[in-house]
Write a protein that binds this DNA or RNA. Structure first.
Length: 362
DNA sequence: GACGCGTGGAC
DNA sequence: TGTCCAAGCGT
């Protein structure tokens, strides 16, 4: 392997140019308006493998409901999952909750302030410990996420490789350009965020915007760096049942709670699934697309009748009736949440709910 | 080291 | 319609 390192004498220039660019172009994101370590922590966990837009929809609501580590620790896990509903990777929410309980019980409710200590908490790995330590506490430690890796490989011209040697190389490069701690500013935290911001807004996976790049002069590849093609998407049709009943003045909808030992979304609520061959003759009440990793689900929702109820794969006792008024407090799967919102059975943000009497859907 | 774990928006 | 994702972690 040729020596692809950024010349070390250029590191200071690189830092300066990047810092100036970041000061001018940083997006105004809510977790950049605070130094509260808890809020930084929540944002970093939410941002794991998740787009900024999706996080924005959940971040404020999560912090309104759980404004402190202690309030999070004291909450039932189902409440935490309910607020997390739609963000995906629900294990993150469970681990965040567990970590908050540990911090409350063992650490006097205070989040550790070093990457080494943070690294020991559930859900906080190599990246997240460095991100919190640098952004919230000013520790001089480099973060390496997908953005930083892509940026550094392109800058140095080293090809993409999923080897430990390549990982080592990227980590070394990142460490070589991260600034020292200095009083009065947060140079390490700002630098780390700048590296990620560059990857997220300029050095895009496909079609990087090299003409706008502040560190074009430092780059060995300038748009010629290849990114691997990915696996093809699959498509699948699935059907779900919408079944409602009245109990007094309340309306209830029938849901299925996934087994608590399921590997996928354990303990979360979804609409009852119907076998596709049971719905051939029916017209769906609702169609939505739902994509999970490698699969586009083309989802159809059917309003219940006797025949459809007989087609259910489980005994009727295995389902649960849930009041419409409490749906928003349940740990719903993202799909269930999307469907129930689309049908106006739970409030979308900013939408006033109609009165219960008018809510029964056909 | 490879794999499983979710999502909705942009195009 | 189908494609491509995004600031990882734990096992």
């Amino acid at each position: 392997m040729p020596n692809t390192d950024l010349p070390s004498e250029q590191a200071a220039d690189f830092r300066r140019v990047l810092a100036r660019w970041y000061k001018q172009h940083a997006r105004p994101l809510p977790w950049r308006e605070t130094r509260d370590p808890y809020r930084i922590w929540v944002s970093e966990v939410m941002l794991q493998q998740t787009r900024v837009n999706a996080v924005l929809e959940h971040y404020a609501r999560f912090l309104r409901k759980f404004p402190t580590i202690v309030s999070l620790a004291l909450a039932p896990e189902a409440d935490v999952l309910a607020v997390w509903s739609g963000l995906g990777y629900y294990r993150r929410a469970r681990m965040l909750h567990k970590a908050a309980q540990f911090i409350t019980a063992e650490l006097d409710g205070v989040l550790p302030s070093t990457s080494a200590e943070l690294r020991k908490l559930p859900g906080i790995g190599e990246y997240t410990s460095a991100a919190i330590a640098s952004i919230a506490f000013g520790e001089s430690i480099a973060v390496v996420d997908g953005n930083v890796e892509r940026v550094l490989l392109r800058l140095t011209g080293r090809p993409e490789q999923a080897t430990s040697e390549s990982k080592r190389f990227v980590a070394d490069q990142a460490a070589a350009v991260v600034p020292q701690r200095r009083s009065g500013t947060n140079a390490p935290g700002d630098h780390n965020q700048a590296m990620m911001e560059l990857g997220a807004t300029i050095c895009l996976p496909r079609g990087p915007l090299c003409l706008q790049c502040p560190v074009y002069d430092f780059c060995r590849t300038r748009g010629e760096h290849k990114t691997e093609a990915r696996e093809k998407m699959r498509s699948r049709r699935v059907a779900y049942l919408l079944h409602q009943r009245k109990r007094g003045s309340a309306i209830e909808v029938m849901l299925h709670r996934r087994p608590t030992d399921a590997s996928l979304m354990p303990g979360m609520y979804e609409l009852p699934e119907l076998p596709m061959d049971g719905v051939e003759e029916y017209t769906p009440t609702l169609r939505v697309r739902h994509s999970i990793t490698n699969t586009n689900y083309y989802v159809e929702v059917f309003t219940a009748d006797k025949t459809l109820l007989r087609a259910l794969p489980l005994s009727i006792r295995e389902y649960e009736w849930c009041r419409l008024g409490q749906l928003a407090d349940l740990p719903l799967t993202g799909l269930a949440r999307k469907v129930l919102r689309r049908l106006h059975l739970i409030a979308s943000p900013g939408v006033r709910m109609p009165q219960p009497e008018t809510m029964m859907r056909q």
